[in-house]
Structures are given as C-alpha cells and as structure tokens.
Nucleic acid binder design. Structure first.
Lengths: 198, 198
DNA sequence: GATCGCATGTAAGTGGTTACATGATTTA
DNA sequence: TAAATCATGTAACCACTTACATGCGATC
C-alpha cells in the first residue's frame, strides 16, 4: 500500500481534530472539496491501515439511538509521518480537463456544440465562485480566531482567483467562437442537424 | 471496457490525422500535455479495441531500418462515435491539488516549508507560461492556416490565463505567509529544525 | 410511508501508471 | 560504446469509484 496522497490527507485532517470516518468525509466535502475528494471506499480502509501501523489510535464511542462511532486520533508517530510528508515537495500531477479536450477538437464539432461547451464551463465556474464566498463566510463564522483559519482561507482564495480567470477566458473564448462561425453562416441558421461537421 | 475519456481523446486525435500509437503519444506530449496525458499502457490497448469495434482501421506500413508502423485511420463509424461524444456535455472532475492540500495543513507545518511549497508552485507556473508561449510559436509555425489551429490556440490561452492568475495568487500568498510568521519570530532565526511545528 | 442523516464497511470493477521486453539505427 | 530515437506491446500493480448491505431515529 502506498496511497501516500489519500493517506496523508486523512492524517492531516485528523491532526486538525480527532474524528470518525464519517466525520472525515463531511470535512472533505465541506472544507476541501474545491481541490480534493475522498470516497468512503478509500477512507475506511485507510483508517484501518493507519490504525494498524500505529499512526492513529482508535476508540469506540457508544451512542444511544445512533450507531457507535469509531473515533480516530493521531499519535506521535502519525505526527512524525505527517511532518515528513509536509516537508517533502508536492507533486504537480497533470490535470485532465475534458472541456479543453473537446474544445481542442472544436473543428471536428459544430459551433453550437462548442458554444454550449464553454457556456456550461462558464456556469460551473460562476457557481464555484459563489461556493467559495459561501464557504469563506461559513468558516469565518464557525472558526473565528482559529490558527488553521488563515491557511484555509488561502486555499479558498486560490479557488476564487483561478475561477475568475477562467470566467474571463470563457467570455473571450465565446466571442472568438462566434467570430469563427460568422463568415460561414449568415446568422442563426438554426436547423443544423446534430451529426454534422465543418 | 468504458474508458470513454481516453478512448475519445485518441479517436479525436485520429480524426485530426491518421497515425500510429507512437504518433499519438508524441502528439499528446507536444500539443495537449498542458491539460491531458496518455500513457502507452492506455494507448495501445485502446487502439486495439477501437480497431476491433471498427471505429478505426489499421494498416501496416513497412519501413526499412525502422520497425513497422501500425497506422490507424478513423472510420465513418468512428466519426459518428466522436460526434456523439462531442455533443455530450463535458464532465468536471474534481482536480486534486497536492500543493493546496499541504497549504491547508499549513499550521501543522512550519513557515519555511510553507514558503518553499508556494515558491515551487510559483516556479512551476512560471515555466508553464513559458511552455505556453513556446507551444504557441511552434503551432503557428508548423500549422499556418490550419482550420484546427484557432481551437488549439484557445486551449493554450486557457492554460496561460490560469497560470498567470495562479502566479499572482502565489505572490499574494507568499506575503501573507511571511506576515503570519512575523509576530512569532523576530526575523530569520534560520536554525529551525525540520520536525518542528507551531 | 418515504426519505434523510447518522454510521461503518466491503466487493467488484475501472482507469490508469510503471516497468519491462524486444531490437534496429542513429547520434554523441 | 553508451545513449537516444523509433516502435509495439504486455503484466502487474495501484488508486479510486460505485454500488451495495445494514439499521436506527427523526423529519417531512
């Protein structure tokens, strides 16, 4: 098992506070979903593995009415492992962008499809920006004065700054696509069949 | 086998020109590496599968001195499949950003490590911008007047616009990190041991 | 009576990378 | 003579997702 990324992501979250697999999933969705994701299928086996290698400890919390919780807490060894990972340089993996892939094949498609493609991409980034604002408000409300907060806000800022840039690119690109089309068609022929090219 | 993404990526590249698995790999690296990647371990089995399902045809090209080439050409069925895929909306997958993950845990790390983290991220994006400029020049030189060119340039523009935004974010963030640190230390204590926190 | 939230987990499958095998020719 | 380029392919492995199973209590 390597799983270095997910493993350390979970370890890091536990360093910011003990919790269950269910808690981890909630935190991922709420606080870091703009740049990270984890599924239960990863989280539970990794927690088991972390416990087996003594990087975290586990204790059962009985609850009435609700199922028992397995609460995990980082150990000194876990801290050391986290610190090692944090001091290593981060990897930049090539991010696959399906929208750009389709746009790259734009000439194989038709203008309407291309416009729809970028319009959806634009909508998505608008929503992202809203989501960032929402999350920022929430975090500031729920964690005032928290020493972790400034770092959290920096990641939100990254998301927002990037989304804004992409938004502007969308506007420019929508214009370019319309211009590319203009010489060919005399304005809105509409009845373009779906499976047509050029 | 689903492989919808890689499969259609390869199909699309073949639509822009016939070629071998080796050619595909070259094109991926040269033209779309800023937002896509494919390994031989994917390419060759997918080409085999595309040929088996008649979406592409294959013919052997004998070469003297060099090994034979398996040249693949998209068929009418392949075109239809590509068109179907192009008219479907693109998916936005959550991109995992390890740098942001580590920054999110910034308080669990130390300021020097955080600064190094963002500095490396900044360097990477500077290089990316250079790479974009380089690629743009190359494509304009090698494919003047090509009908595909405008779409290719749009994807490069996306990369550049995004990288520039991230670059600015890096500068702001580096300052924020330095400011966060200032109240704690009276300027450059230097001998901070690696495995220290807070 | 349906669905949502809490809570833990597994099995099967997918999508992808890495490393390896082969081997000729050309370049450094 | 070492390494890079051309060229095709496979096997093993890994990371990750999806779907499923279970079951209680609260809300709609």
């Amino acid at each position: 098992m390597k799983q270095s990324k997910s493993k350390h992501a979970i370890l890091g979250l536990l360093a910011q506070g003990s919790g269950s697999g269910y808690d981890i999933k909630k935190i991922v969705e709420q606080k870091i979903s703009h740049f990270w994701n984890e599924s239960y299928g990863q989280i539970y086996p990794i927690l088991k593995d972390l416990a087996a290698t003594k990087l975290v400890s586990r204790k059962v919390e009985r609850q009435t009415g609700k199922p028992d919780r397995q609460v995990y807490t980082i150990t000194a060894r876990g801290r050391a492992s986290l610190d090692d990972w944090l001091s290593e340089p981060a990897q930049f993996q090539v991010l696959r962008n399906e929208t750009l892939l389709k746009l790259f094949f734009g000439h194989e498609s038709d203008t309407d499809a291309n416009l729809r493609l970028i319009q959806r991409y634009r909508d998505y980034h608008l929503q992202l920006i809203d989501g960032c604002a929402e999350l920022e408000k929430e975090l500031k409300r729920d964690h005032p004065g928290d020493t972790d907060l400034p770092y959290w806000l920096m990641t939100i800022d990254h998301c927002r700054v990037e989304a804004r840039a992409v938004l502007r690119w969308c506007d420019v690109t929508l214009k370019k696509l319309a211009d590319l089309d203009e010489p060919t068609r005399g304005r809105k022929p509409r009845a373009t069949p779906v499976r047509q090219r050029r």
